[in-house]
Nucleic acid binder design. Structure first.
Lengths: 332, 332
DNA sequence: CGGATGCCTGTAATCGCTTTCTCATATCCG
DNA sequence: CGGATATGAGAAAGCGATTACAGGCATCCG
């Protein structure tokens, strides 16, 4: 920076002013500084900046697993969105484990992250405490809980899952099953399962435990789960999946074992991944505008950072996309 | 840090020594400091550290697009691998554009990245220059060019693609087509196409331009490309895809338009994504151990950073995975 | 025409750590 | 037992920015 200042015949304070677009700087001076910067190929030190300004342009995002289309698409959108606003994205994955999430969070704080975006609202007390202690704002995504004190951008997983159930009820289904995500420490998975249960209960139907199989968002495991369900004495006529990947597992397993979808059994996914519309049969699912969700979460976080006032809970619209994998309940 | 030092009744220099695991510190003193750190919930400032030590624990990775399973899996593995070694991963995407890559690279340098990992070996001169200027080592992944001066971890795209061609030739195929990735600024896509062309030429066969369709790694575009190829007067009996996603497009399009794979046409992918084994027919492809590739790239970069000596070019083993999507050439 | 005002720029302290000296103490050996 | 050698710990100088604070110089107005 001293070199730039010398080259432009100004002080480092002025260079700093030019860099930060603030304050008064005479156009001619500004130009001289900018030319010096370009000529010297000067890149300001982010470390020094954040040290001295007590703020950084780094945002951390903690994702359960990047290796899942839904998160990958979100991270991609987030990265682009942030970089357009001059921020950098630090990523970490928690593997759905609050303790790992806490560790990642600490490492973000170590890097002076200005804010953090996390999935869900189930965080370890330590994690919340350390964020609080370092006065670092955060936003929960994938959930919508206006009554809770934490900023969030997402939707009501239970309510949305209930929508899918209502649609299947209209089609005359009565024997339901669910391939759910692992519910341990995963409020989204829990919410979806709860929503399904509640809506069925409201219609006098039950979802017995043996009709709920939890598995990871993994095609092989989901295929196995679907196979297990369909081999039961009384197989379900409708299978709700916790996520599209599980829906893919169901459809692919059906293709392999000759089960006809939707004639024998209807399948509904959740997320609307790109592949869903291309499979045969295509997958009926809940569309979640992932990219938008992450960008809105970033916006909210940036607003929080700059002290702008912003709603602290934002609901993202989801919609049921009916495709080929669902149909009327088979008549026995 | 001063608080910690005070609590442990030592100087900040000693706290620093404890933190950096170096130098001599009496076990008792070390323990006192560690307890003080834990008691105060102290998190050292990465910015101050890198400012003062002129080195950071940040590695930047520039990926063309995170929203592609192959990169997502790689990034996931990379993040985990680095975090186990005390490093943080900064990510950026280039959209296959060298200029964007350069900008991302600059922003990494701004954050004092200790090293950078990039895809491929096609980088803008500016990018190379700035990395050089800031003495920041980098590793190219997805390519293997032992003769070039830049560290790389990957494989010979042309050579590997040729393997797939040889296999198809053995099956009696003579009319080939290729759904290639967009070759602009993408040396991997170029290499694969070149390898296919070369191997065919070596066997007296030609791959005319009208039998090569470039499209993005996107199911919809690949479906369209496959459809176009198969509607030709003389459709190919073997279609090579630049990537598994394009292979998925081919298989899914075939499912929809009633084209029988492999009876009418054989399809080969590249990468061996998870879905490949689950589609029906399952996709014959080249397996690329992505996770391993990224981890080895990280290892090489860390070795470069610590001055350890390390080979500067590492070849990753790929293998042809024969599945259901390929078979003998149809007899006319 | 003098002082107030506003615009622009410089000086220097500071951010939280690392690291080089420097020095005190403990250990060792002949 | 004395001096050389390790070992352990502190003092203080930066690292490269930001940001009060201060001050110079036009401009403006009474």
């Amino acid at each position: 920076m001293a070199d730039v200042a010398a080259a432009a015949q100004v002080s480092t304070a002025t260079v700093s002013r030019v860099l930060n677009k603030a304050d008064y700087v005479k156009p001619a001076t500004r130009k001289a500084v900018e030319e010096a910067i370009a000529a010297l190929g000067y890149i300001p030190s982010g470390a020094a900046r954040s040290l001295s300004s007590r703020s950084s342009r780094i945002i951390g995002a903690i994702i359960p697993s990047i290796d899942n289309s839904i998160f990958a698409a979100g991270v991609e959108a987030l990265q682009t969105h942030l970089s357009e606003r001059g921020y950098h994205l630090l990523i970490g994955s928690s593997n759905y484990d609050p303790e790992e999430e806490y560790q990642v969070c600490r490492s973000f704080l170590e890097q002076h992250a200005a804010g953090v975006i996390m999935m869900g609202e189930t965080h370890s007390p330590d994690c919340l405490a350390v964020l609080e202690r370092y006065a670092t704002p955060f936003v929960n995504t994938g959930v919508y809980s206006p009554d809770r004190p934490y900023p969030c951008v997402g939707f009501d997983n239970a309510g949305v899952a209930a929508t899918a159930v209502r649609y299947l009820l209209q089609l005359g289904h009565e024997r339901f099953a669910m391939i759910a995500g692992i519910t341990t420490d995963n409020d989204r998975a829990i919410g979806r399962l709860r929503g399904v249960r509640a809506e069925l209960a409201a219609n006098g139907l039950e979802l017995p435990d043996e009709r709920v199989l939890e598995c990871r968002y993994d095609i092989a495991e989901s295929r196995a789960a679907f196979r297990t369900l369909m081999r039961r004495a009384e197989p379900p006529t409708a299978v709700l999946c916790g996520n599209d990947v599980q829906g893919f597992g169901a459809i692919l397993e059906a293709q392999h074992s000759g089960i006809r979808i939707p004639e024998e059994v209807s399948v509904v996914g959740f997320d609307d991944l790109v592949l869903s519309r291309h499979l045969k049969p295509s997958l009926t699912t809940i569309r979640v505008p992932t990219q938008e969700m992450w960008c809105r979460a970033a916006d909210m976080l940036l607003a929080l950072l700059s002290g702008k006032d912003t709603p602290r809970a934002l609901e993202i619209e989801t919609s049921l996309i009916v495709r080929e994998s669902t149909g009327p309940a088979p008549t026995r």
